[in-house]
Design a protein around this nucleic acid. Structure first.
Lengths: 201, 201
DNA sequence: CTATAATAAGTGAGCGCTCACTTACTCTGG
DNA sequence: CCAGAGTAAGTGAGCGCTCACTTATTATAG
């Protein structure tokens, strides 16, 4: 799990970040104490403060790295540009399902930060993180429309936001324990009308 | 604002509840201190504890009353059973927009509780609150399908959950300040394919 | 008069964060 | 090559403050 030996500043920072994201996701921002965060990373509390000036700064760094992870994941899925939109949507949700299935606490992180949006800095970081990914998605959708493989009577950024909503919904369903009602298959069904080729009458 | 005089136990409880919901919504559960909650209700901290055994119990009571409010609102909109689904969806989001516009902190409450779902009691209350409203919606949608005014190739409970997701998305958009991208009109556009009469080919 | 609505004035626990210090590694002059 | 000065990584203990919650007391509607 956590490394025992002394490591480079950068490596240590990475360990702290990934463990902190998991802890924040599992417990929420306020229930995650600095002592807990330190323990999870296998270091002392004091060391946390040599890497991040405050607990809040640590959270924001987690948001950034979470955003990067999502961005990379999306890019990997969307890079096969010749793909049929339906297939792409499929693999999007499959990937989503895997992510949520294997590391639930990482994805719960996405819900946790919603409660801290009153804070200006956290809100700014969250907004940047989401918009960046929305823009990536939107560009891909736009390409699909231009190539004529995606219906063009709905603005692509709208579909992107729909996907954000579906992601939230899925996380919520998982945490509430109602995945029997709202599963990956359901997500696909709800997105399907927007990733067809034909425009609606 | 807050009543000054001595009032009946029930009335005082209502004042505390509604003010607490607003404060929780504005600040989040943990940032809302008991002293703040008391001040908002115009009473002493100690009195809070004569009405609710703990801060957590107060939150749960807020969740319940929030659920009731939504339930009543939905019932009012859905009671006109002869309505066209499109129109109903319209007024749903119009109502939603008004609610969000006039009392944003009440609706932010919906986001805030998402971060506290790790707690068993809070999760149970939230789940009950959501499922109750989902069931109400689902019954109305089912009636629409049976009467043939709503496409019947999508399970009604799925559409209900979609609406939950859209509600979340809208709240998020409002709090992030991206309502220029995701507004009530956008919500309607995203729901439209599911509230048409015709089945998709 | 009295039941109870209401409060003023606490208290202990736990939190974020810091300080003074140790341990492990790296580099360089002789 | 290597002693040991210099530095970066790391820590245990605890301070100050805030918070959820309590106790002891007063005020008033019926």
């Amino acid at each position: 799990m956590t490394e025992k030996k002394r490591m480079s500043r950068e490596d240590r920072r990475d360990v702290i970040l990934s463990q902190a994201t998991a802890i924040f996701g599992r417990l929420g921002y306020h229930n995650a104490t600095t002592s807990e965060l330190a323990k999870a990373a296998g270091v002392s509390e004091a060391l946390l403060y040599q890497h991040f000036p405050s607990k809040q700064a640590l959270l924001i760094a987690c948001i950034d790295s979470f955003g990067d992870r999502v961005y990379d994941g999306l890019q990997a899925i969307l890079s096969g540009d010749e793909l049929d939109p339906q297939e792409t949507a499929q693999s999007l949700f499959a990937q989503l399902g895997t992510l949520l299935g294997t590391k639930p606490e990482i994805n719960r992180f996405g819900l946790v930060i919603l409660a801290e949006l009153e804070d200006k800095k956290i809100r700014a970081a969250t907004r940047k993180m989401i918009e960046r990914n929305v823009e990536l998605l939107t560009r891909a959708l736009k390409r699909g429309q231009d190539r004529g493989v995606l219906r063009s009577d709905v603005r692509p950024e709208l579909i992107s936001w729909l996907l954000v909503g579906m992601y939230q919904l899925y996380s919520l369903a998982q945490r509430l324990g109602v995945l029997d009602q709202v599963d990956a298959q359901a997500m696909r069904e709800l997105v399907r009308p927007f990733v067809t080729q034909k425009d609606l009458a």
